[in-house]
Design a protein around this nucleic acid. Structure first.
Lengths: 325, 325
DNA sequence: CTGAAAGCGCTTACAG
DNA sequence: CTGAAAGCGCTTACAG
């Protein structure tokens, strides 16, 4: 079963490959009779012709693909939504988004060379070597970052997340805070920054630094942490995310502590389970749509060679107050 | 900034492009002096050469990419893990996995033609037209399905999920069951099948059919549903998944019903939040690793033109008993 | 042991 | 208005 090529269409419709190409690509600046156009179109349809992207890519040196490289951390609901939206936004520009779960399984270089993408979006920092190589190949490289970074097209300021948590708790009158970190080592980069935000806010308000505890996603680990906090006089805990916060809730329950009276808890992400817990979880919500739109805009700007739009992290984050604080 | 080609490497190392290709691809059946090999390798390194995948694809008609097409439903933790594992497994075969969040944004045909993948894995059913076109192009098409389907390489039997739930509840002595369906319309295909499983098990045991309620992921909706069930004499609820089950838990709490004494609840997925809820959630867990391995095996078999291995859905599912039942 | 040449399928100056 | 030809970068029979 040989592949149908433009030569086949040309033969079938009695014109040259040039004409086929002109007609099928609606090339500007050529005039071709409506009759010929129709013949070519019909032939293409009849034969089920569709151009070889490999040949096109070779010829033009570019494709219509945008490669998204995911980092080595678990994909949560926020990133999932971002990818969704990004796919939709870029589709309007005839671009297809391809996601690589880049758990470092294969060298990144082989991947992007194999794909010949129009642009690469990294939800993680690329090695300088990879980034340089891609830029040399003329591929715009866009990366998001965990905090403000002048090279990033978009940054969710992770320190700001922690800061918002601490601010919310301090405003409610708590003076001794705890921090519940994730056990998952792949989240360390995020965790450090969020914790730094909590620390900074505490320092700024003249409060003692937060009492840090690592909390596994099980009741026993959380119970131990809660005991430590209670002993240390902690009255409110900022958790790495909602899952960890739910563990803290479970730990408090196991210790017979009332939330928020004995211990207040705030998470991050606004997951569904946090709305349904007892008590419902106060949390820092991230607006995935705003993030996706920012990234999409940056990609499009890079392709059009426009100046990079300003990242607008401003209203991505907001505190959703529920009954756990 | 021109691209470095094999011609550059040839010039730099004083040999022909043929020799460059032989050396760099370790082509079998040619003998090239160790000295020459070394010169070529050095030159390639020095120049930062890496072959154009587009040219290779054009030449050979194939790439090293496996395209995974995701369906139009939200990606949960199970699918995320499956993709992770699949990426890892296929990396061992020098294949890169590319995931498309195929929310139908662009026609599938454009995508696979642009990628020229070695194989396509669909976590959803393809249209017959697309599937045929890919097969005609010599691309193995593997699809998973929601239930047993002879054409699928892998099926998580969704009816079996519901059946396991009902079985567990009936074994515990419940005779009047409720079913909590998801409000998210994109999950309808799954929901129908799981519900069918519950229905079948009830019928088989001579029990009344389950009382069906749609439950939003908020307390109000769940409370309404719980009232209805209570009125109908329902003592146990099988929920579409753990999130819905957590909503039912919240609804029972709001109505002052004790779980499991007044109302037992079982979910699906074994998410973290279900281990941390009050009470912890009994659930049907799916083994993502087994799923991923099955799919990977099927992909590899298809590429090697081996007969398709038997799907082995047997031990993918298991009931994890916690205190909500 | 190594090189000149063809060809994968496309697009686009260039020439009629 | 349409066609012959070059060339994108690679691999691989084929010829030395």
């Amino acid at each position: 079963m040989a592949r149908v090529t433009s030569a086949d269409v040309a033969r079938e419709s009695g014109v040259s490959r040039t004409t086929v190409s002109y007609v099928l690509n609606d090339t500007a600046g050529v005039t071709i009779s409506a009759d010929t156009r129709q013949r070519v179109r019909d032939a293409a349809d009849r034969l089920g012709y569709s151009p070889s992207a490999a040949a096109r890519a070779l010829r033009s040196g570019r494709s219509d693909l945008v490669l998204c490289v995911l980092p080595n951390w678990p994909v949560g609901p926020v990133l999932d939504t971002v990818l969704d939206e990004l796919t939709r936004e870029l589709a309007e520009r005839q671009l297809s988004v391809l996601v690589h779960h880049g758990r470092g399984a294969r060298p990144l270089a082989e991947l992007w060379r194999a794909v010949t993408p129009r642009a690469v979006v990294g939800f993680t920092e690329f090695g300088a070597q990879d980034a340089d190589a891609m830029r040399r190949a003329g591929i715009p490289v866009l990366s998001t970052s965990l905090d403000d970074d002048p090279r990033a097209v978009f940054a969710v300021p992770q320190t700001r997340v922690g800061q918002l948590q601490a601010e919310h708790l301090a405003d409610a009158g708590h003076v001794r805070l705890g921090w519940a970190g994730p056990a998952e080592p792949r989240l360390a980069d995020f965790a450090e920054r969020r914790l730094a935000g909590v620390r900074a806010e505490c320092a700024w308000r003249g409060m003692a630094p937060p009492v840090v505890q690592e909390v596994d996603l099980d009741v026993r680990s959380a119970t131990d942490a809660v005991r430590t906090w209670h002993t240390a006089g902690v009255t409110a805990v900022a958790a790495y995310n909602d899952e960890v916060a739910l563990a803290v809730l479970a730990g408090a329950r196991a210790r017979g502590l009332a939330v928020p009276d004995d211990l207040a808890v705030i998470g991050v992400d606004d997951v569904h389970a946090g709305r349904l817990s007892d008590p419902p979880l106060t949390t820092v919500a991230q607006d995935a749509r705003v993030q996706a739109r920012s990234i999409a805009t940056a990609v499009v700007a890079a392709l059009d060679d426009l100046p990079r739009p300003d990242p607008e992290p401003g209203d991505v984050l907001r505190v959703v107050v529920r009954r756990s604080t």
